[in-house]
């Protein structure tokens, strides 16, 4: 059984009619209602933990950061992130937030599209059949590391493009408009812009904007970009993640903060968590369970290789969040 977490009052305040949504949630699972005022994340966490039991298969947060806040964690790395925004703590029974005890995902709301949340809940299928046409974009500087992750996707008809030479104006039509496929991005992102960037040396061309994304029905998106999964105060015009979901994507995996990775294999940090997620998802297990198992695999591989989890490993485990129905099983069409 799913455990839904939301705040009807906050949804209403954002112009989203909470009545049909709450009715849907109570009909389809257990519900934890956050208080009318924005809750302290720790208070909310205790409320969720009190409801967790063997009957709960997964937890789904309904709403964006303004409805149910991400949980702020101390940033283990030295960079400009004051904290690392995470959903892990909401499903961690103890105060160690690297490996959650339950699968969790979030179905975000969009301030500019009050109907999106209801549309997603009503139309979401538990089984998504994707073709084996996989499309990816990588910063040229990370082409070797990206090839390693990309090798984990289905083998037929896959295309990994590098930026530069790829720039926004030369985006292939099948990226802009193509349904039921995987999408992989290993590019630069920033909290100050709705663009993602490639890189070669000191050249950072814009390679994707939210405006470039049109029809993405059933698409499964995996992004390593810094802030690729950060939605707060962003809407259709400014967030690539939200635009993918608004355009019909089933699932989106991305980072809420600055993410890290090597230039060359073996995969580490963002490369490793995304690669492990792809491998687990392809075993046809529910998406949020796939992410939980990917985190465990990340820990096992990293500690087997280096004997410890360092600061950027820890940040990688905190910062990747999954958007979409946690029960989605991705099947590959041959």
């Amino acid at each position: 059984m799913k455990l839904y977490v939301t705040s009807p009052q906050q949804l209403d305040k954002k112009g989203i009619n909470s009545k049909p949504i709450m009715s849907y949630l109570y009909k389809n699972g257990l519900v934890v209602e956050a208080d009318s005022l924005p809750s302290s994340p720790e208070f909310l966490r205790q409320k969720i933990l009190a409801e967790l039991s063997a009957e709960v298969s997964s937890v789904v947060i309904i709403g964006n950061h303004q409805v149910i806040p991400f949980f702020p964690l101390d940033n283990p790395t030295v960079d400009s992130d004051a904290e690392v925004w995470s959903d892990n703590p909401y499903v961690c029974l103890y105060d160690d937030f690297l490996l959650p005890d339950y699968p969790i995902s979030r179905i975000p709301s969009d301030p500019h599209n009050p109907l999106f949340l209801w549309d997603y809940l009503e139309n979401c299928k538990v089984e998504v059949e994707v073709s084996q046409k996989v499309f990816g974009i990588s910063a040229h500087s990370w082409k070797n590391a990206s090839r390693e992750v990309f090798s984990l996707f289905p083998d037929k008809h896959k295309q990994l493009l590098f930026s530069p030479p790829l720039i926004r104006l030369s985006l292939p039509v099948h990226l802009v408009e193509s349904n039921y496929t995987y999408r992989y991005f290993n590019v630069h992102g920033s909290k100050h812009t709705h663009l993602w960037y490639g890189q070669q040396g000191s050249n950072y061309p814009a390679v994707l904007s939210s405006e470039d994304i049109i029809d993405q029905k059933g698409v499964v998106v995996i992004s390593e970009a810094c802030y690729g999964g950060w939605l707060a105060k962003r809407g259709e015009k400014t967030s690539i993640a939200m635009k993918f979901l608004l355009s019909g994507a089933s699932l989106f995996l991305g980072s809420t903060t600055i993410s890290y990775g090597p230039s060359y294999p073996p995969s580490e940090e963002a490369d490793l968590i995304c690669g492990c997620f792809v491998q687990q998802l392809r075993k046809q297990i529910p998406a949020a369970t796939a992410l939980l198992k990917a985190r465990e695999e990340f820990i096992n591989l990293t500690v087997s290789r280096q004997g410890y989890l360092d600061d950027d490993d820890r940040k990688s485990l905190y910062q990747f969040v999954l958007y979409g129905n946690p029960d989605i099983i991705v099947k590959e069409r041959f």
């Binding site: 103890y94 160690d96 490996l99 465990e296 820990i299 500690v303 087997s304 280096q306 410890y308 989890l309």
Partner: peptide
């Protein structure tokens, strides 16, 4: 980490203190 050691056998067996 004691919590991770409780959740993963591989972590329990392989994790060692390290100064970096």
């Amino acid at each position: 980490d004691k919590h991770l050691a409780g959740k993963s056998k591989i972590y329990r067996d392989k994790a060692k203190p390290r100064r970096i």
